[in-house]
Simulated scan of single mutants.
Amino acid sequence: MTANPIRVMIVDDHPMLRDGVVGSITRQSDMIVVAEAGDGAAAIAAIEAAKPDVVLMDLQMPGIDGVEAIQTISRDHPQVRILVLTTYVGDAKALRALKAGANGYLLKSAMRTDLIDAIRAVHGGGRHIPPEVATQIAVHAIGDALTEREIEILSLVAAGNPNKRIAWRLGVSEDTVKAHLKRIFAKLGVADRTHAVTVAAKRGIIEL
């Protein structure tokens, strides 16, 4: 063990995944795991005592999710570097995490090969963004983003609500819902509700 190892906190609601990450890190002479947490609230509560250099943060967790936790940690502990762990390539989700203060983005499918290098990269002041994520961000950056109301409507569509029920829930006319859907389809480059939901979920715009 080096004199000043990189202090790592792991935040993920799957114990088996945390165990795997701990195993990988403990084999490194320049790293040490100082804390684990199963959700964003536990991470925020533990960070003061743990004093990590790098936080590995899952995005989808119960209660306080990864993006909210990243915002809080970045605000209160700006010296801490944050590396997102996620199963999603989606550009919207990646952008939210990076805008919240994350310094890198690592796909869980690439953890076996890229985890250690990614930790060292963000700890050294750099960023780690996989090429496939960077490509998705670039491809969609020039397009029109969905508005909050459009995301709300698409989430209701994804939950199986027909237009009439969406209109009732939002207090608008059914024609207004149809107009919103038409704009959503155009922005996402799709022709129907099912494809719109699939594309939006893949890009991380909505949660399924």
Score class of each variant (00 low, 15 high):
residue 1 M to R: 15
residue 3 A to M: 10
residue 6 I to Q: 06
residue 8 V to H: 06
residue 10 I to K: 11
residue 11 V to R: 03
residue 14 H to A: 14
residue 18 R to V: 13
residue 19 D to N: 14
residue 20 G to L: 04
residue 20 G to I: 03
residue 26 T to Y: 05
residue 27 R to K: 15
residue 27 R to Q: 12
residue 28 Q to G: 09
residue 30 D to Y: 03
residue 30 D to C: 02
residue 34 V to S: 02
residue 37 A to P: 02
residue 38 G to L: 08
residue 40 G to V: 05
residue 44 I to V: 15
residue 48 E to G: 12
residue 53 D to F: 12
residue 58 D to R: 08
residue 59 L to K: 08
residue 66 G to K: 01
residue 67 V to S: 01
residue 70 I to N: 01
residue 71 Q to V: 04
residue 82 I to G: 07
residue 90 G to V: 04
residue 90 G to M: 06
residue 90 G to H: 10
residue 92 A to N: 10
residue 95 L to Y: 03
residue 98 L to R: 06
residue 102 A to H: 05
residue 108 K to R: 15
residue 110 A to N: 14
residue 112 R to Y: 08
residue 114 D to Q: 15
residue 115 L to D: 01
residue 135 T to P: 00
residue 136 Q to V: 07
residue 137 I to L: 15
residue 141 A to F: 13
residue 141 A to M: 13
residue 146 L to G: 02
residue 148 E to P: 14
residue 156 L to W: 05
residue 160 G to A: 12
residue 165 R to Y: 07
residue 171 G to Y: 03
residue 173 S to T: 15
residue 175 D to Y: 10
residue 177 V to S: 06
residue 179 A to S: 09
residue 182 K to G: 03
residue 183 R to T: 15
residue 185 F to P: 01
residue 186 A to K: 14
residue 190 V to C: 13
residue 192 D to I: 02
residue 198 T to I: 13
residue 199 V to W: 10
residue 201 A to Q: 15
residue 202 K to A: 15
residue 203 R to M: 12
residue 205 I to T: 11
residue 205 I to R: 07
